[in-house]
Each structure stands twice: as structure tokens, then as C-alpha cells.
């Protein structure tokens, strides 16, 4: 699966990183708690979240993630998008809720860390 496939599956808008849509991703996680993402995630390359603050992008950066998807239509500000761009992290936005967005990606074959 690519970041572009995620965009299609979630009916998402690309807010940053149009040039990264061809990048492959192998797994994903969904959480509004960055503490949990930092503690439990190992190799996930996509983060889905409804939390909107710069630490979401920082967390993705620390974990070497390639894509952040903001659910429930949450909109990051310009500073967050600039930060994401600086670290080659694609940023998508979908109107779907977290559970639904994760479910669509899982059903399409994008697994989590525990299968």
C-alpha cells in the first residue's frame, strides 16, 4: 500500500507531501495519546489521530513515520504542516472517525503491530 492508496481509501485531502504519495507503507496505528504511540509503536509508518498539536508531528518524526492522517476533519495549522514538510512526513485529512478510518485501512491489508 502507498500513501496515495490511503488517500483514496479514506477519501482524504492531502494537506502536505503531494510528492510522497508514491511512498510505500507497511503498517499503521491509531491513537490520540502520543504517550502510547511512543511506548508501544515500533515499525509503524502511518499514524491516524484526532489530536491536533505540533507534538503529533514531533512524535511521528521521532518514530520515523511517513504519514500522519488527521481524522474527524481535524485541521492542523500552517506551522504543523511546515514541520511535517521539513521531515518528509505526508499529512492527510479525512472526515472519517478514527475507528472507521483504521477499519478501512485494516480491511484493505494495512496491518497493525500486533497483526
Amino acid at each position: 500500500m502507498t500513501i496515495g492508496d490511503i488517500q483514496t481509501l479514506l477519501g482524504a485531502e492531502v494537506l502536505s507531501g503531494e510528492d510522497l504519495l508514491g511512498q510505500p507503507v507497511l503498517s499503521a496505528c491509531g491513537s490520540d495519546m502520543m504517550s502510547d504511540v511512543l511506548a508501544f509503536v515500533k515499525e509503524q509508518s502511518v499514524l491516524l489521530t484526532g489530536l491536533v498539536n505540533p507534538q503529533v508531528i514531533r512524535t511521528a518524526e521521532m518514530m520515523d513515520m511517513r504519514c500522519v492522517v488527521f481524522v474527524r476533519g481535524k485541521k492542523p495549522d500552517g506551522a504543523m504542516l511546515t514541520l511535517a514538510k521539513a521531515h518528509d512526513i505526508a499529512v492527510l485529512q479525512t472526515p472519517l472517525r478514527l475507528y472507521t478510518a483504521c477499519g478501512r485501512l485494516y480491511a484493505a491489508g494495512l496491518k497493525g503491530e500486533d497483526g
Binding site: M33, S35, A39, T49, L51, Q55, T59
Partner: peptide
């Protein structure tokens, strides 16, 4: 702080891990 996505009591254990 929890509303900002932190403060779950995972930070120090995660540092140690």
C-alpha cells in the same frame, strides 16, 4: 496535559525501556 496527548504515565518507563 492529557488533552495534549501526554501524561499517561508512560514517559519514564519508555525512557528506561
Amino acid at each position: 496535559i492529557r488533552d495534549l496527548g501526554f501524561g499517561a504515565g508512560m514517559g519514564m518507563p519508555n525512557m528506561k525501556r
